[in-house]
Each structure stands twice: as C-alpha cells, then as structure tokens.
Design a protein around this nucleic acid. Structure first.
Lengths: 334, 334
DNA sequence: GCCTCCGCTGTTAACGTTAACGTAACCGAC
DNA sequence: GTCGGTTACGTTAACGTTAACAGCGGAGGC
C-alpha cells in the first residue's frame, strides 16, 4: 500500500502555516517573512514534497508544457532542432511534449494538435515544413501561442526559419565561383518548403549569373534516392557541379559517381546541405551548408514565450542565415 | 476578450443531462442509453468541447503522459527509438514528454526525473545507457512504473535492450567466417552499456575461436573519433578485419583506410553497427548489424503499460536480437 | 489618539474532472 | 404483489492548487 504523496497542506501543517503561504513561497511571491520562508522550505525538503502540476494547470488554465508537432524526428535536421528546443525549454522551466506524425496529411496533424490542446499546453511549435501542415493550422483556435519552424513563408503565423534561399545561393555561388558553367540540383520532396527555398536560391543565382538552368532532379531526403539521381547525373558527361538539398542525398550522389568512375572533386564537384556530423568523413569530405539549429530553437522558444507572457501575436518572422562549410568536394572543372 | 473554453457542464446543459453522464460517454462507460450518447456527442461537437486533461489528472492521480529521459536524441539510435516509442504511445492514447539531458552526471538525470514526477507522469522510460543513469535510478520513488532501455543488465529494474552481446558475436563471427585470423574492435565510450556488450560479444567469439584478442581501440560514437582510430589501424599491416561499435565510427575508419590507400574490402574488411539509412551508400556499402528499434519501442511500451494497469513490477527483462545485414565491406583476406 | 497604509498571513472559493453513492424505473421470478 | 437485480441516470464530494479577499498588527502622518 503506497501512501498518498504529500500535498501542500501537509507541508503547511508541518511548517505551522497555511497552505497559501506555502504556495507563496513556491511561486516566489513577495511579502513572506524570511523566517517563514525558511521554515516552509525545510518542511518541503523534509517531506520530499513535489508540487502537483496538474492542480496548478487546472486553476491557472495553462500548463508549463510546450507541445511540439514534428514530422520525422529521425532525420538529422528535425532531431537536432527538437533536441535543442527541448534543452532551451527546460532551461525556461517548460516541459516539452512531442507529437510525432507519421504522414503529412491534414487529419493526422490536426489530431496531434488536438491532443496538445487537450493537455492545455502553453504553446505549440510546429516543425512540419510541408504544405499540409500549414493547412491544418488554418482551422485552429487562434487563442493559443503558436510558432512555426521552417513553415510556410506566406502564412500569417509567427515563423522562424533557416534562410533556405540564402543557403541555396551560398552553395550555387560557391560552385559558380569555382569556375563551373552551371550547377545541377538534386532537390528534396516537392511539398517541403525547405526544398522550394533551396531550389529558389539555386535558380536565382544561376539566372543572375546568366548560367543555364538545368532541370531539377527531385528526390526524397534519402541517400537511396540521391543514389538514383546520381546514376543519371554520372552518365551525363556535361555535369561538373551538383548541389544536393541535403547531405544524405550528397552521399548517394557521391556513391553513384564513385561507381561510375567519375572522380570527386576532380571531375565533378558536390555541395550538400545540413552539415551532418558524418559529412566531414564522406569520401571526399563534403562541402556543405550548415544551418544553425541551436539558434533556430532559441529564437522560436523566445517567440513562443513572448506570446505566452504578453498574449500578443506579433506575427513576426525571423530568418536564420546558414553558413557555408568548405571541405574537399569542390574544385574547378577541368 | 476570449471566452472560457466549454467545460463538461456546458455540454451537459446543452444535451439536457448531468455532467456525469457526459463523463460516462467520454470514458465509454456502459449503461448509457444510445439515444443519450448521441445527444451528448452532438453537443460535444457543437460546442467544440475538449476535455481538460489536467482536471482528469488531478482527480485520478495519474496523467496520460509518459516521461522519457533521453541522453542524446541527435544520434540515430536514440532518435529512432524515441520516435518509434512516441508513435506507439500515441496509439495507446498516451502523450510523451521528453526530457533530454546534456550530461551524464547523476544530478542532471535526477532533475529530469523530478520534472516528470511533478507532472505526475504515468510512467517513465529511461533511454540513457550509461552507468550514471543507473545510479540516479537507485534513489527514485519505487511506486512509479519505470522501464529502462539499454540500461544496466545488473540492476533490478524492468529492462528492454538490444542484445548487444549477440550483435558483437554476429559481427565478429561473420568476419572470422570470411577467413580472417582475428578481428580488431573500435568501441564506443567506456561508460555505455552498449559498448560493454558489444565488446563482450566480440571478445567471446574471438576466444571461442581460439583467435588472438587485440587491444580495444576506444572511441566515442563520432566519425571523427573513428577516423582517429582508423589512422592507427591503417598503419598496422596485420589488421585485416575491423568491427566498429557503430556505423559512424565505421565511416571514420573507412575514411582513414581510404586515405592510407588500404582498399576495402580487398585489404581490410569492416563491419559496423546500427544500420543507419546511409550505411548502404558508404564506400563501399557497409556490412552492419541492425537493431530493431521499433520492436524495442513496442516492447518497452508494453512493459510500461502492464505496470501501469496492474501495478505489478515483474522486473522483467526482454532482449531483442539484432540481425546481420551483409553488404560489400567484408571479403576474405588476401 | 485616531486614521491610513503596508507587510504578512489566513480563509474561502473556485478550476473541471472522476468516484462513490443514491434513486428512480423496469423486469422477471416466486 | 413483493422482492432482488439491472439499467440509466443524477448528486455530492473530493483531487491540490491559485486568486481574491479579509484580517491583524505596527509604523507613520496629522
């Protein structure tokens, strides 16, 4: 038989005060005598008292929990983001409840959001950079703080995002600067905003330089699909420079190139995106674009917290610029 | 001014019943007339009513939330596990609150657990396969359902784990069967149980075969440290077979071998662990050991749920066997 | 000396849900 | 026709916390 966990009134009784005074001590209210505060704190530690968040949530109407809606937390990008966000939230005294979603469809996203809402989360972060996520957000109660990460740039929702366009530019410009006449692109799935942004940056840069714009090779985010695209690219002699929408795709491309005996970077240059920890040990070490996930996490948490505290919806959007990491996979064309 | 969210009594009033009847409908209790149930359900959808989980938690004493304590959710293994667990939990009607922890030290692990306890989580999963996590668990209230994943095999706590020893055996035996006289090992950090298990399996197999047991090269989990070990290995002519404790390490080793002009698999064979999605596109495609994270997630959730429902602590331990995935990085020695 | 204000503390009433119990109505058995 | 049992509800009382307000001293101003 387990005994009931100690509640506020038990602490109060032991300290010889009312439960309200205990509450005041716990919440750091002013107007509590130092001596009383100490007595209460002693009682708390003696009983091993832990405040019941559920009761607090019930009476205040808001929990100290942040809900996250994430798409595929197995990928390096989302996983990094989630981890960074969780750490930042913990520092601010918030717990994080993740709701992964298997599919991109609207109903499953809505279901996850509903679950968060039922728990009366203080705010929601949506890390689901696809069209359907934006749609699902449309028909949501507007009275809850919400931040979208890598979401739809056109939607009137607070948004913090990696500057995908800038990333695409960085990669493409780097290859052009190395002397390549044009750059081929292996993109991510069409419905991801990440893909669209990177394509836009790539295309812009090409056009601004007066270079020919080759057709986009569309893949998913996997090395396997990168490999398939890479096989086509490897067979096309005029291809000398490739920008892939992430590092996994780059690995697949690298592999296909290797199989076809096309040497990197001597014959073909490759630039990736993400700077996964492994990228420096690809063969050859991969030049890539590094998004700063820590900053994205901090900024999005900040946006969420200001909404929670002030109740204001600034409809801000913050853009974090990525940086180019140069390694050995780029060289001038022969 | 936002209006108060509808509560049970609002639904009850609209449906012309008592709030208790609404509760019964919501919880699927029997003894509710079909007609009444429909009236209530209609009222629920009309008002857009969402039950308040906090109130439920308060009165029942248990929330429908599972707490996870995880170490580094950026690594492929933990990320996969977490994602799989979250999906499984959602299906069972549970939300998942993650508590990442930056360091391995006991206090930070305890802090995360305390946070979960304050939220009155229904159960806790600890995915922190290091010594210090086990210690932190020692001094925890025993009245909360708890499952350890990849934890300390010696501790009397329900545990579900990949059979690390078997994985080490699988890899080593495969290399021995290919004709190698012995197998070198690049291990993970010393305080991880994963490392210890894989080392044990490797050593056992070597000894059972009467092969010489080379010294262990200890690394962390990163490709960078794999590369450093790989450089030493590459300079040692008698090395013909290497088993690395994960695929990232293998990538680093592969890279070092390539740099030193030692061809894989012609001169040196390599086997990894984890089967990350990229492994099939390493150069050469990596033979590796695949743990079944989905099963681990399902089993650990199952263990947790039986503890929650029955209140029993079977102190079970379930071991999930990994499988060998053969690709091109292994060949007979010359 | 009285009135006011402020620092400190206690009392009471919510918050929204479930558990426990009460109460009709109905049904079949004897 | 009474009795026990079942079905279909309603009533009341918790759960543990915070908010609102009340009270009670003592300090300071007139």
């Amino acid at each position: 038989m387990t005994v009931r966990a100690p509640a506020m009134r038990d602490v109060a009784r032991l300290a010889g005060v009312s439960h309200q005074t205990v509450s005041r001590v716990l919440n750091g209210h002013p107007h509590v005598r130092e001596q009383t505060r100490l007595r209460v704190q002693a009682a708390i530690t003696e009983l091993g008292y832990r405040p019941n968040r559920a009761a607090r949530t019930l009476v205040t109407g808001r929990s100290q929990v942040l809900g996250v809606v994430a798409l595929n937390t197995t990928l390096y990008g989302p996983a990094s983001l989630l981890s960074a966000f969780e750490l930042a939230a913990a520092e601010a005294g918030f717990a994080v409840s993740v709701g992964s979603v298997r599919n991109l469809d609207r109903t499953s996203i809505t279901a996850v959001v509903e679950r968060h809402l039922a728990h009366r989360v203080a705010g929601i972060v949506v890390i689901a950079p696809v069209e359907s996520a934006g749609e699902a957000l449309e028909c949501l109660p507007t009275d809850i703080p919400l931040v979208t990460v890598d979401g739809d740039p056109r939607r009137p929702v607070p948004l913090v995002t990696i500057d995908q366009v800038e990333g695409g530019r960085l990669a493409t410009r780097h290859l052009l600067d190395a002397g390549h006449r044009t750059v081929w692109h292996v993109s991510g799935p069409a419905d991801w905003f990440d893909s669209a942004g990177r394509i836009a940056g790539w295309r812009d840069t090409l056009q601004a330089a007066g270079a020919e714009v080759p057709p986009v090779l569309q893949a998913d985010w996997s090395a396997a699909s990168g490999y398939r695209c890479g096989q086509m690219l490897a067979r096309t002699p005029e291809v000398t420079a490739i920008f892939t929408a992430n590092d996994d795709l780059a690995l697949g491309v690298l592999h296909a190139l290797h199989e076809h005996g096309r040497r990197v970077p001597e014959e073909v240059s490759v630039v990736g995106f993400d700077d996964v920890p492994d990228a420096a040990y690809f063969i050859p070490p991969l030049t890539t674009v590094r998004p700063d996930f820590d900053t994205v996490a901090e900024v999005s948490l900040g946006l969420l917290l200001t909404q929670i505290d002030a109740g204001v919806d600034h409809t801000l959007r913050q853009t974090i610029s990525p940086t180019l990491i140069t390694r050995d996979s780029v060289a001038p064309p022969r």
